[in-house]
Write a protein that binds this DNA or RNA. Structure first.
Lengths: 247, 247
DNA sequence: CGAGCACTTGATCGCTTTCAATAGCTGTGG
DNA sequence: CCACAGCTATTGAAAGCGATCAAGTGCTCG
């Protein structure tokens, strides 16, 4: 934790997620209105940010770090239903209770708004509502793509799909394109990967070992991954490699 | 097909989905603007309404019947990612190409708008954008609930979950509450159920037989279902029966 | 040095799939 | 009227994949 912000009025102009977050389309006036009501909060890795069923008093944007949305059944089976990355929006205007647990996977910083003032501002700021609709539609597409992974893919394909998503996202955040080898650190434990993929952590571990043995990925330590051939990985994921409609 | 509408200016005031569709919050002026540009289309059971990858020239609301959203892998594995019921919105303002196949499961009627005029109207009609945001957030919740079903539930629990969802929806469309036995017709073939649940049709058939044998459901013919005890079914689905947060 | 945690690997079990045969229903045509 | 094709659904037997149970490794931190 070497990057904590606690001031209430850091400049939105300098914000690293400025161009992708819910405020992306706002003009100067609208940003100033947001700046009036925003505040930053930090959470440590492992902390639960919101409990399922709790009243949601705030909404906000992920500034840095990674969080997960999870559902848990009475007997303990859990399914991750979303991965929250920088610029993603947390919370739901118009609903009072949280439907899922939100857990910090790494240390995170959020840009928060108390729910009511944000709802009021949204009602008179179409730019925010429009951007939120776009982001929600994107999340819906992502959730549906994940349904195919959960419902129809094999364990090996599931792992390859997850690695491919993480690699692509990483490429879009950093400068790198998708040609040549891709290198990144896994932001998730084996157990978290299992919860995302609907597998056990043992199966995750075995399939990662298998992909490594087959040369699809290279591992340094447990978390540092190199993908020598992205096309190969996408074949392993069962994805269309030449189709052009990927997001 | 004894109920086909082809006139372009049927009254929105008489529309059966008026209070739940994307136009739900519109006032009289806004409805008139919608009436200007709307038109009805019918499709027969089995027809593909939109092909994945195709240009989407229109959006619209389901008026009657049932359609499904499906994704297919190159080798033929398919996963249903959504079930479209009366009042549900089809299509995505702001995106040009369809990400999924949309297939009519029964004969259906849709209230359509050409995409561009609808987008223009939406840009100057906050009531429509707000309602669409609400509906999209609801769909996102439904998709995430389904991720738990796909990722973590057993075949038996999956069938029970599907029956419980269909039963609940049916109760909300007809007058009936959820006390006492519930009766409805399955709108899906065994294969469609399998595609929704990430199972094979044989497993679907076996588990339905098992639930029938155990008295959880009663079957007349292949499609007509009676649920004597909804609480029992929800236990079988692995859902919280006493928790109060269900939609 | 030992406790705790994340991860790996092995052996076995069992659920779901796969392959295959059959039943029931509908519509068609001789 | 019956034979037959085509479709949906059921049921059985066998195989396979991932889960479960169980050790053991390597690392960090006190």
């Amino acid at each position: 934790m070497n990057f904590q912000i606690h001031t209430d009025h850091s400049k939105c102009g300098d914000c690293p997620i400025r161009h992708r977050a819910v405020c992306a389309h706002c003009d100067q006036d609208e940003l100033e209105a947001l700046e009036e009501i925003k505040y930053y909060r930090s959470f440590e890795a492992g902390q639960t940010i919101i409990w399922s069923g709790d009243q949601m008093s705030f909404v906000g944007s992920m500034v840095s770090g990674i969080a997960s949305l999870t559902q848990t059944m009475e007997d303990g089976r859990t399914q991750m239903v979303g991965l929250l990355l920088p610029s993603d929006f947390v919370g739901r205007p118009g609903r009072d209770f949280a439907p899922y647990d939100v857990v910090a996977t790494t240390d995170i910083v959020m840009c928060c708004f108390r729910k009511k003032p944000f709802e009021d501002l949204m009602a008179r700021t179409p730019h925010i509502a429009q951007r939120l609709l776009q982001m929600t539609l994107d999340e819906l597409d992502a959730a549906r793509e994940w349904m195919l992974v959960l419902g129809r893919k094999t364990a090996r394909e599931k792992i390859a799909s997850l690695l491919s998503i993480i690699a692509r996202r990483d490429a879009s955040l950093t400068k790198g394109g998708m040609s040549g080898p891709m290198v990144f650190d896994l932001p998730l434990t084996r157990e978290a990967m299992a919860d995302y993929l609907g597998l056990t952590l043992e199966t995750v571990s075995r399939q990662i070992s298998a992909l490594k043995r087959d040369g699809v990925i290279l591992l340094e330590g447990k978390r540092h991954v190199t993908i020598p051939d992205m096309g190969r990985l996408m074949e392993e994921a069962g994805d269309d490699t030449d189709g052009g409609f990927l997001v």
